[in-house]
């Protein structure tokens, strides 16, 4: 094996190492910018969307969205789909509240398909409707303000 061939092989191997490094970089890069909104997922959701107004038409007064009216998250809204909504400071909640007076899992909104209920999940500072503390599952109507910490949440039609 001549010296020259070995030198070529040496450079070839270093090149191979760096090609590997660069292809990893390109995979990481496409991973950073390539996360996409799945059209299939959206398509699956879209037939559900027209169903939602139909349900609300059937019974007047059923709220269709949850609105945060006060606190640092004020202005956020979430359409109601019949799924349970949890609120709190933790990451595993549906809506993450940026409020120091809110527990990591503070309260949740649940529905039986007809009405919405609010339930305190053992929060430190409590959940209030008006001035009364929520101690058990309580029915709430559209427009009722529910307060937790400095945040006020209400359901709207």
């Amino acid at each position: 094996m001549s010296e020259f061939t070995l030198t070529l092989i040496k450079f070839g191997f270093l090149a191979l190492l760096w090609i590997f490094v660069l292809s990893i970089v390109s995979v990481i890069r496409s991973d950073l910018f390539g996360a996409r909104v799945d059209p299939g997922q959206l398509a699956k959701e879209s037939p559900r969307a027209p169903k939602q107004p139909k349900q609300s038409k059937r019974r007047r007064g059923v709220p269709t969205q949850l609105v945060i009216t006060e606190g640092s998250n004020a202005g956020q809204t979430l359409p109601l789909s019949g799924e349970t909504i949890t609120l709190g400071r933790g990451t595993d909640t549906t809506i993450r509240l940026d409020d120091d007076y809110v527990s990591s899992r503070h309260a949740r909104f649940v529905t039986n398909g007809e009405e919405w209920f609010v339930e305190d999940m053992g929060s430190t500072n409590g959940t209030y409707i008006g001035s009364s503390r929520v101690t058990r599952t309580t029915v709430i109507n559209a427009g009722t303000a529910v307060r937790m910490g400095k945040t006020v949440v209400e359901l709207r039609k």
Binding site: A35, Q41, E45, L78, P79, T94
Partner: peptide
């Protein structure tokens, strides 16, 4: 990257399996 944090609109962000 946050999913379902109540911004109203927006579909699911899907990481490609690669």
């Amino acid at each position: 990257r946050s999913r379902g944090t109540g911004s109203g609109s927006g579909g699911a962000i899907v990481h490609r399996t690669r």
